[in-house]
């Protein structure tokens, strides 16, 4: 899919951007991140076209959503690793991989 192609109309781009944005709500912040990066130049650097304003909004919202999700994920990982030893068996059950070696 090539966004810079002249054959892709503005409406199509908007539709795609919207679908990516909506798809992100299915716990898919990576989709938001992709959306934000992919459409960024179209939304902010490309010469103005009819749908640009809407695309810009979606791109901004996607970027915010992706950033927040990343933050939440990092915070969770930090918390988990901080308290893993304290939580005992519960944390062990939650662990995909338990590091070996020195505690």
């Amino acid at each position: 899919m090539d966004l810079s192609s002249a054959k892709v109309s503005g409406a199509d781009k908007l539709d795609l951007c919207r679908k990516y944005f909506l798809g992100g709500f299915a716990l898919l912040p990576f989709l938001w991140a992709v959306n934000a990066v992919w459409f960024a130049s179209l939304a902010f650097r490309a010469p103005p076209f009819a749908e640009q304003k809407a695309i810009r909004q979606y791109v901004l919202a996607s970027a915010v959503g992706a950033g927040l999700s990343l933050l939440v994920l990092i915070v969770w990982i930090v918390i988990f690793n901080q308290y893993r030893a304290d939580w005992g068996a519960v944390a062990d059950a939650m662990s995909f991989n338990i590091p070996t070696g020195q505690p």
Binding site: L28, L31, F80, S95, F96, N97, P99
Partner: peptide, 30 residues
């Protein structure tokens, strides 16, 4: 030896996989 929990793993894998499916079979950045 990286500690990782199932919740983050499920989240990451879900994101990775679904975006991959979208990019390969539907539309996505080349």
């Amino acid at each position: 030896n990286i500690p990782f929990d199932y919740i983050s793993l499920a989240f990451c894998l879900w994101n990775f996989g679904v975006v991959g499916m979208i990019c390969i079979h539907w539309k996505g950045p080349l």
